[in-house]
């Protein structure tokens, strides 16, 4: 795990839909190789923040840099180069419905890697095996369950060994065993490749197991309520709303 260098930096960031600001004054930095959990009540703008951090949406105000590049103002080639080094899992998995799971994973590899088809196939099979889909490779997304689609989406997000991986509710729709296995996978990827992970999640046990930092988005104030290691917020007296989020969700 590498540390020190900030791979993701937000400075006075404002995000929203169109001109409507959902969250503003967001400022934090994430060192490389760390896992950040974006938490908060439903509808507070967690996915919107993740899209802005990953360069999919332009922020309304402020600045965010990923690997030292401001994606909102970066030239096309720089932007492509950064996006090539990131992976995304969307809430609805967003698998290409006309491709099998294997083809879904192979698609970004074919576009960006220069290795032979045999090795691409081998890599895709390995990624699918990592998420427990070794025997569903030739199925279409319409033939698998929501949980399996989520796992296939994670495999596709990992296809190019990204330096930063964005996961929007990765555990949603997964059974506790699969969810635990996914946490283990995230930790192992970080340990093996130093992958930085940004994840949106409501699963407190999973956040406590995996995240090094969490940012709490407070819809009442329209800005971040707290930023720090999740375990800190378990102690009473620390940021009351975040403490309540962790403790209530934990024992509900």
């Amino acid at each position: 795990m590498s540390g020190g260098r900030d791979i993701l930096v937000c400075q006075d960031l404002a995000i929203g839909h169109g001109d409507r600001v959902v969250m503003d004054r967001l400022s934090f930095a994430l060192p490389a190789g760390r896992i950040l959990a974006v938490i908060g009540p439903s509808g507070c703008g967690k996915s919107t923040l993740m899209r802005a951090l990953g360069g999919l949406d332009e922020p309304i105000g402020g600045r965010t840099t990923l690997m030292g590049i401001d994606l909102a103002t970066a030239a096309g080639a720089d932007r492509q180069s950064i996006l090539r080094r990131t992976g995304f899992l969307f809430q609805g998995s967003a698998l290409f419905s006309s491709l099998t799971l294997r083809e879904n994973i192979e698609m970004p590899m074919r576009e960006f890697l220069r290795c032979p088809a045999k090795e691409i196939r081998q890599l895709a099979e390995y990624k699918l095996a990592l998420v427990g889909l070794a025997d569903a490779m030739d199925k279409l997304p319409s033939e698998i369950s929501g949980g399996m689609a989520k796992r296939a989406g994670i495999a596709r997000a990992m296809a190019l060994d990204p330096e930063v991986i964005f996961l929007d509710e990765p555990s949603a729709g997964l059974d506790p065993v699969s969810s635990g296995r996914l946490d283990e996978l995230i930790l192992r990827l970080r340990a093996a490749f130093g992958t930085t992970v940004v994840l949106v999640s409501h699963e407190v046990p999973s956040i406590l197991r995996t995240a090094d930092f969490c940012v709490y988005l407070d819809p009442e104030t329209g800005t971040m309520g707290a930023y720090g290691p999740p375990k800190d917020f378990l102690q009473a007296g620390q940021a009351p709303k975040v403490h309540a989020f962790f403790t209530q969700a934990r024992f509900d």
Partner: peptide, 18 residues
């Protein structure tokens, strides 16, 4: 760290439905 990446894929494959 390399061992864990291989064994994890193997374990997940064993539990997958045939």
């Amino acid at each position: 760290r390399l061992q864990s990446l291989v064994t994890m894929a193997e374990k997940a494959s064993e539990t997958a439905e045939k």
